[in-house]
C-alpha cells in the first residue's frame, strides 16, 4: 500500500462518513418532528415524510463521490494510483462534499423541523414550507459538483 492510495482512500471514506453523519442527524431530527405530527394528525404522513427525507440527500451525494473516487484510484478496477501527490489531490477533492454535506444536512434537518411545524398547523402551506429546507440543498449540490469535477479531472494531471 502506498501513501497516495492512503490519502485517496481517506478522502473517499470521509465523503461517505461525514455526509452520512450529517444526513443521519438531519433525518433523525426531522423524523422526531414528523412523528409528533403523526401522533396527532396521521393524515399528514406523506407531507411530513417528504420533509423528513430532504436532509437525507447529502448522505447519497457522499456515497456517490466515494464510488467515483474508488473507481478513479483503482480500488474498483483499473490501475491503482502510485503517486503520493495525486492521492493527496483526491483527498482534497473529496473534502467539499464531506464537510459541506455534514454541515448542510444538519441545518437542513433543523429547517425541516421548522417546516414540519408549519405543515402541522397549516397543511395547505406544504408547498411553500418545502422550499425552505430545499434552499439549503443548493450548497450541498454545489459541493457535490466541485468534488465530482475535481475527482474526474485529477487523472489528467498525472
Amino acid at each position: 500500500m502506498n501513501v497516495g492510495m492512503v490519502w485517496a482512500l481517506a478522502g473517499a471514506v470521509l465523503s461517505t462518513a461525514l455526509a452520512g453523519m450529517g444526513s443521519a442527524w438531519g433525518v433523525g431530527m426531522a423524523g422526531q418532528a414528523a412523528a409528533g405530527v403523526i401522533a396527532e394528525d396521521p393524515e399528514q404522513f406523506a407531507k411530513v415524510l417528504i420533509l423528513q427525507l430532504l436532509p437525507g440527500t447529502q448522505g447519497i451525494y457522499g456515497l456517490l463521490v466515494t464510488f467515483i473516487t474508488l473507481s478513479q484510484i483503482g480500488i474498483l478496477g483499473g490501475n491503482p494510483i502510485t503517486d503520493a501527490n495525486i492521492g493527496f489531490l483526491y483527498f482534497l477533492a473529496c473534502l467539499p462534499i464531506a464537510i459541506v454535506g455534514l454541515v448542510s444536512a444538519y441545518h437542513q434537518g433543523r429547517t425541516s423541523v421548522a417546516s414540519i411545524g408549519v405543515v402541522a398547523k397549516r397543511p395547505d402551506q406544504f408547498g411553500k414550507s418545502m422550499l425552505f429546507p430545499a434552499m439549503v440543498e443548493t450548497y450541498a449540490i454545489l459541493a457535490l459538483l466541485v468534488s465530482i469535477l475535481a475527482i474526474t479531472n485529477i487523472a489528467s494531471l498525472a
Binding site: 431530527m29 422526531q32 418532528a33 414528523a34 412523528a35 409528533g36 405530527v37 401522533a39 396527532e40 394528525d41 423541523v113 414540519i116 411545524g117 402541522a120 398547523k121
Partner: peptide
C-alpha cells in the same frame, strides 16, 4: 423537545 413541539403545533389548531 422536537417531538413535543410538533405535537403541540397540531394541538394549537
Amino acid at each position: 423537545y422536537i417531538f413535543a413541539v410538533a405535537r403541540i403545533r397540531v394541538k394549537e389548531k
